[in-house]
């Protein structure tokens, strides 16, 4: 089965950010597949290159990068959410007159249209992040 993942969880304060990663890792290690991952809202903070979590905590970006490389799926940050939160790639930083990009590859900026179009090839879409 192919899964598209929508991650809204804040990587600093929500355990759902780790749940999403562990789901993706398990999918890649099984007969299942991940079609794409879209980080939206506070979820995009995961792609900020300047994050420095303590060394003894889970290193989410590196593990996402490894899972994405193994499973050959893209890691999209919602471009609108990312701009609001200061996560800019080189092109966007230049457009805004900023000296440095703050986006950590292999994360990349993408619009909702890209995500929704790619999610069409998935059998299921899972959302991680809204806590009730």
């Amino acid at each position: 089965m192919r899964f598209a993942l929508l991650v809204q969880a804040d990587p600093t304060s929500s355990p759902a950010a780790l749940s999403a990663l562990r789901f993706a890792e398990a999918a890649v290690a099984s007969e299942h597949a991940v079609s794409c991952v879209f980080f939206q809202g506070d979820g995009v903070q995961l792609g900020h290159a300047f994050r420095r979590p303590p060394k003894d905590e889970a290193q989410l970006p590196a593990r996402w990068a490894a899972a994405a490389a193994q499973g050959a799926f893209p890691l999209y940050l919602c471009a609108a959410s990312a701009l609001r939160r200061g996560v800019l790639d080189a092109g966007e930083a230049m457009r805004q007159g900023l000296e440095a990009a703050s986006l950590a590859p292999p994360f990349e900026l993408a619009g909702l249209a890209t995500f929704l179009s790619e999610a069409q090839s998935a059998d299921r879409l899972l959302t991680f992040g809204v806590s009730l």
Binding site: Q8, G111, A113, S117
Partner: peptide
């Protein structure tokens, strides 16, 4: 921002004629 994001997503999907 979740409520606004839901509307953004719905509008984007409608624009794609989904």
């Amino acid at each position: 921002s979740s409520a606004a994001e839901a509307l953004d997503t719905a509008m984007a999907a409608a624009a794609l004629e989904m």
